[in-house]
Amino acid sequence: MANVPEDLHYSKDHEWVRVDGDQAIIGITDYAQDSLGDVVYVELPKAGDEFAANESFGSVESVKAVSEVFTPVAGAVVKINESLADEPETVNSDPYGDGWMIRVKMSNPGEVDSLLTAAEYEDFTKAESE
């Protein structure tokens, strides 16, 4: 069973959001990394890039497939996880920790309320894998 931490917000595209003041840290969920398989390459934006909600901000590649990743909330990128360039497998081993992808300054912090809670996301993945 995939791990779904209580304190995060989730999107239907399988990203998670950790709120830190008016900033959001974004990564992909345990369920997503497990479905992708071994991550071999992560393409991330640059600091300063701005994204609307649900916009593609990069891609995660396994041996077999390329998957786009989307911003659950709008904002400007403050920082990216540079270490994923050399250690993309961190996305598999620690998706909610060292495998984080980008930190954005949210343009509308209220947006997180429209995201799924842990319980809702768990139900959503159950329905999706049935």
Partner: peptide, 13 residues
Amino acid sequence: PVQYPAGTIEEHL
């Protein structure tokens, strides 16, 4: 199956 539980990289190696 695209891959078994070990995953593509481990299977390949």
